[in-house]
Design a protein around this nucleic acid. Structure first.
Lengths: 338, 338
DNA sequence: CCGCCCGCCGTAACCGGTTACATAACTCGC
DNA sequence: GCGAGTTATGTAACCGGTTACGGCGGGCGG
């Protein structure tokens, strides 16, 4: 029934369990002849070491826990992919658990990780830092992603959303757009709030009247915003959405209504999802896969005592200029609602 | 230093470890007063049970291992997302390990799972079944995804690629296309081979001359195929690519060359990646997230002894008709190379 | 020839939980 | 008042590995 254990191998090879362990783990204090006997027996029995038991006695699991919220779009995927790439490169496994917005559930998820992982990667922008502090098993090294605020002793990695948003709005201004509407992200979302901040800062800097429409990161919100813009009498020549999906929804709705992009209205997003490239959507690239990989790398360094600088890290997103925000020309002006 | 253990809690609550275990696990043979003492002590110590030790003694890890190849595009992501959704719904964690094409590495990945998971989900279309059979720890229940062939005792889940391809090609024929080219997937890829089969079957059924161009699932291959089609003297009025990315590459290249789609040449893909919708690309939907979820569901049923039908399962993909394969009209005929 | 060192190996403790079994206290029926 | 049954608890074995420690035999120097 059950698989062969190390004692079965020992019995068959006529040695002790200690020798089996030593032989299979490549220690050098085993006679070559003994090692061969062990390996032979192990092969015959199809023996595979029990990683759980191993990590219990070694107090090392060679696994890292990943707790992510219900990210929509490509976000979740890209993040996990980046993490997995780096983890498997360094011989670690990923233990995955996504938590829904409920913070109790998050606590449970975090607790069930203890004893199976060596460290934790936590992305929980919507959970209060002190709640998080409570929920993370204290002795578990961990890195926070996109967190609200730093936690003592836990390095964080985050994107500079505000700088990214500023860069994009500055780009719009530089290309001749003056009546820029922002489609916001959901309330309470930190990334969204910071992006809005960046937008407002640039508006203030150039004395442009800010205008913010509500949104929730979904495509439909972008469509709704487009309808609102078209129905409104306020003049609009550019839209900066808090993420790409809303920008895409907006783009489609505008074009369906016969509006030319960018001649009549420019559109920009945030994230640089793969789709953006195909739609020639200008956006701000947050390389989420790289962030995942970076987080894993830092966590492993930390676990293996190789981390010199235990500070938080801020990644600057990159402006990606494409056709939907091309410089304004004489041919395309004033077409949108006066 | 180390976290509190159950013995620390026992000491502090002045009871035995057995009582602590019973109290915290909600067994009913504990006096209420004792339970309270235990819970109090546990809280004071910030005790979190060691899941590794727990699963060792229970012989149950409440985790399932997932081994995926380096899937490109949205594939990997969607698959993991579907799995995670279902797993977390049922209280399981996912242990992730992607394996590169190397089969030795795959074996290692599979072995390190033993003892930390209760079952395995393996997607390894490129690995020979017998090699796989060797590599999977025998007593570990597992489900194969998109596998080449069934393994005894291991249910498999796969898409009926052939039926999907047939449906699409029939759809093209029904819409008036007669000179249909197929852009193939990479050699040795099972999905690709089955899709080509479906294409050939329909061609034979309608006495259409088949024509297959090489491809590798990448966008560039689609572009190359488009160039080949445009340069060729053979008449072509539709392209059926073995996956969406090639179809998209082809679509772009055709349009860049001034070819109208679908008036001059229709284009169809396979997979229904999110992009396809935006490009109005007709395709065959393989709901990979659902497959992942389904696989998890079945594996857990199997683990918990709830699986009645232990047979393999074949999921039928769904035809998604969009603008790039609209019915042929009088206006758009004969434009492509005579 | 004796003592020491060294290489190889086995015994048993340990990692942190669960749980079978023993025990003790207490009730109940006669 | 005493045996049987019930309930709450403690002791220790066990899950499957790793490894500290001690034993044993052989080579070597004195």
């Amino acid at each position: 029934m059950g698989e062969a254990t190390i004692r079965d191998v020992a019995r068959r090879a006529e040695v002790s369990v200690a020798s089996v362990s030593r032989a299979l783990n490549g220690l050098d204090n085993v006679r070559a002849e003994t090692r061969e006997k062990v390996i032979k027996a192990a092969n015959e029995l199809g023996y595979v070491p029990h990683a759980g038991a191993r990590s219990l006695s070694l107090a090392r699991a060679h696994a890292i826990g990943v707790v992510l919220p219900d990210l929509h779009g490509e976000f979740f995927s890209e993040c996990v992919r980046g993490m997995d790439r780096e983890a498997s490169r360094r011989g670690y496994l990923l233990l995955l658990s996504n938590m829904h917005d409920d913070s109790d559930q998050a606590a449970v998820a975090l607790r069930t990780m203890r004893g199976r992982v060596d460290g934790l990667l936590v992305m929980a922008p919507h959970i209060a830092p002190e709640t998080l502090e409570q929920a993370i098993p204290p002795a578990l090294p961990s890195i926070l992603l996109n967190s609200h605020a730093d936690l003592p002793g836990r390095p964080a990695l985050r994107f500079d959303n505000r700088a990214g948003a500023e860069a994009m709005v500055e780009h719009l201004v530089a290309n001749g757009y003056r009546h820029i509407v922002h489609i916001a992200g959901p309330d309470g979302n930190l990334d969204a709030a910071q992006r809005a901040e960046g937008y407002l800062a640039v508006c203030a800097r150039h004395h442009l009247p800010p205008r913010i429409l509500p949104g929730n990161f979904n495509e439909e919100a972008g469509e709704a915003a487009a309808r609102a813009i078209l129905a409104s009498t306020t003049r609009t020549d550019a839209v900066f959405a808090a993420n790409d999906m809303m920008a895409i929804g907006c783009l489609h709705a505008l074009r369906d209504a016969g509006t030319r992009v960018p001649e009549d209205i420019a559109v920009a997003g945030f994230d640089d999802v793969p789709l953006a490239r195909y739609l020639s959507l200008s956006t701000v690239r947050v390389n989420i896969a790289e962030m995942g990989a970076r987080a894993v790398a830092r966590l492993i360094d930390l676990l293996e005592g190789k981390d010199m600088h235990r500070a938080s890290e801020i990644l600057t997103p990159e402006l990606v200029m494409r056709a939907t925000t091309a410089p304004r020309t004489a041919s395309g002006n004033g077409a949108a609602h006066a």
